[in-house]
C-alpha cells in the first residue's frame, strides 16, 4: 500500500535533480530575507539576538510559501494530479508522499542552514540549540500547512497573494511557539513545553492534512 507514496517520493527526487540548481532558490531567498532584516535594523544592535527567533521563523515561513507554490501547480497543469485522483491507491497516502517530498527537498535544507543565520544574528549557545530543535519539530507542520495552501490554489492560473493569505493565519501559532522555545531558553528556562506543543501540532498536521490535501486535489476540473 505504501508503494504509491514511495513512487511519488522517488519521482519528486528525480524531478528535483532534473531542475538543477532550482533546489537552492529557497535557500537564497531565506538568506536574503534575513540579510534584509539586519540591514533594515541597525547592525550590532543589542536587541538583534532577541528578535532573531522571530526573524528566522518568518524567513522560513516565507521561503516555504514561495517554494511550495509550484508543488501542486505543475502537477495540476500537466494532468498528473488528475491521474493521482483516479488511481486506485488511497489518495491521502499519495498526498502524504508529496508533502513528505516537499518537506525533504524544500524545508530540510533550510532547517540545516538555519544555525548559520542564528549565529549571524548573534544568538547565544542555549538559544541556538532550542531554536534549532524547534525548527526540527515545527517545520513539518509548517511544510504541511503551506502544502495544503498550495493544493487549494493549484487550479488557479496564479496563486499570487492568495497563497500567503490562506496559509499565514494558520501558521501563526507555530511561529509563536517556535520563537517561544528560543526565548524560554534565552532566559534560562526549560524549552521543553513549547517544543512538546510544536511536536504535537506537527503530529496533528501529519495525521490530518493529507486528508485535507486529498479533498483539495479532488477540486481539480477533470
Amino acid at each position: 500500500m505504501t508503494g504509491g507514496a514511495l513512487a511519488i517520493l522517488r519521482r519528486e527526487w528525480m524531478l528535483t535533480r532534473h531542475r538543477g540548481a532550482n533546489w537552492a532558490q529557497p535557500l537564497v531567498f531565506f538568506a536574503v530575507v534575513v540579510t534584509a532584516f539586519v540591514l533594515g535594523a541597525e547592525p550590532e544592535a543589542p536587541w538583534l539576538a532577541e528578535a532573531a527567533p522571530a526573524v528566522v521563523w518568518v524567513a522560513l515561513l516565507l521561503a516555504l510559501i514561495v517554494g511550495s507554490e509550484r508543488a501542486f501547480r505543475d502537477d495540476a497543469r500537466s494532468g498528473f494530479l488528475q491521474q493521482l485522483v483516479r488511481s486506485p491507491a488511497p489518495l491521502p497516502l499519495l498526498m502524504f508522499g508529496k508533502l513528505v517530498a516537499q518537506w525533504l527537498f524544500t524545508a530540510l535544507p533550510l532547517v540545516l542552514v538555519a544555525p548559520l543565520a542564528m549565529v549571524a544574528l548573534q544568538m547565544q549557545g542555549e538559544a541556538v540549540g532550542a531554536l534549532w530543535a524547534a525548527l526540527w519539530v515545527g517545520s513539518p507542520a509548517l511544510s504541511m500547512v503551506t502544502g495544503l495552501g498550495a493544493a487549494l490554489t493549484a487550479s488557479l492560473p496564479r496563486a499570487g497573494l492568495l497563497l500567503p493569505l490562506c496559509v499565514l493565519p494558520l501558521s501563526l501559532p507555530i511561529v509563536i511557539f517556535g520563537s517561544g522555545a528560543a526565548r524560554a531558553a534565552e532566559h534560562g528556562l526549560s524549552a521543553a513545553g513549547p517544543l512538546y506543543l510544536l511536536a504535537s501540532v506537527s503530529l496533528l498536521c501529519i495525521c490530518g492534512i493529507p486528508f485535507a490535501c486529498a479533498a483539495a486535489a479532488k477540486l481539480q476540473p477533470t
Partner: peptide, 20 residues
C-alpha cells in the same frame, strides 16, 4: 472570502473555501 472570490467555478470555489 479571498479564496472563494478567486475561483470562477462556484461549486469548486465553495468546496475550497469550505476546506479552509
Amino acid at each position: 472570502i479571498a479564496l472563494h472570490g478567486a475561483m470562477s467555478e462556484p461549486r469548486a470555489a465553495a468546496r475550497a473555501a469550505a476546506l479552509l
